[in-house]
């Protein structure tokens, strides 16, 4: 994999983390109670750290014309490659838990592959992130079970979140030429491996939480080409506001 393609690969992964980190940051002061509020922000901070490390490396691989901050704050919507799942809003607590649980599994599998590559920077990022993601999966899985197997209201809301978000899961195991290059270099699992891993864990955890895995097969696609749902534009407007209003502003 040449530097430019590896850089694109890192930007995709960095974008998933960055956009999720922003969604988590929106929960600050809005958690159901103090302890969980802090927990959600902590997990967001983990993701922001991973995004920063990946975007710094991507910028370096590109040749240094852009910095990690340029990548985060000066790219328009169509140049972001995060999965549509990551940008879905915090409609209620169940949406947060379902979105983050599924993405935690995706990141676990992704970092497992990356932790074994010869590239020291990437394997270093992945090894550190794996420890964090192991906890993320545990935390979100706990909530999934608690909500799904909780009250009638929490069960219904969680099932609604699953049904609404399900069409965005297909992107997690979709493949294009950059994925094929990454797979060839053992930087990433194949689409089939990822799909099997996700579905095994998701169906087992959902059934433990008395939730149904949807049967619908319609899946959206597009984020690898920069196509997104309406929500990313609003998210970027807020996230990038300062750099757009005051370019090069410093602390």
């Amino acid at each position: 994999m040449d530097n430019l393609n590896l850089s694109k690969f890192c930007i995709r992964l960095g974008d998933h983390c960055l956009i999720m980190a922003h969604r988590q940051s929106e929960l600050c002061s809005n958690g159901p109670f103090l302890e969980e509020d802090i927990a959600q922000i902590n997990l967001g901070l983990d993701l922001l750290g991973q995004a920063e490390a990946l975007l710094i490396y991507a910028a370096k691989l590109e040749g240094g014309t852009r910095t990690a901050d340029d990548l985060a704050f000066r790219r328009p919507e169509r140049q972001f490659h995060n999965f549509m799942l990551t940008e879905q809003p915090n409609t209620d607590f169940a949406f947060v838990i379902v979105r983050q649980y599924i993405m935690s599994l995706y990141l676990l599998k992704t970092y497992q592959a990356l932790s074994k590559v010869e590239d020291d920077t990437l394997s270093g990022i992945a090894l550190k992130a794996l420890k964090e993601l192991t906890y993320h999966e545990r935390h979100f899985a706990m909530w999934l079970k608690r909500l799904g197997d909780g009250t009638e209201e929490s069960h219904e809301r969680t099932q609604t979140a699953i049904n609404e978000l399900w069409m965005f899961v297909g992107e997690l195991y979709e493949e294009d030429e950059i994925d094929f290059m990454a797979q060839k270099a053992s930087y990433a699992p194949t689409g089939i491996e990822m799909k099997t891993f996700l579905m095994e864990h998701i169906t087992a955890k959902f059934s433990e939480a008395t939730l149904e895995t949807p049967h619908s097969i319609y899946m959206t696609t597009g984020s690898k080409k920069g196509i997104h749902t309406e929500y990313l534009g609003y998210l970027l407007t807020e996230m990038q506001y300062l750099q757009r209003a005051y370019p090069d502003a410093k602390w």
């Binding site: 103090l34 302890e35 969980e36 802090i38 927990a39 935390h139 706990m142």
Partner: peptide
């Protein structure tokens, strides 16, 4: 910390 059960208590304590 506040929590509803053991697992939530140990996770909340970890996060705090």
């Amino acid at each position: 910390v506040h929590a509803y059960d053991k697992e939530m208590a140990i996770q909340n304590a970890r996060d705090l």
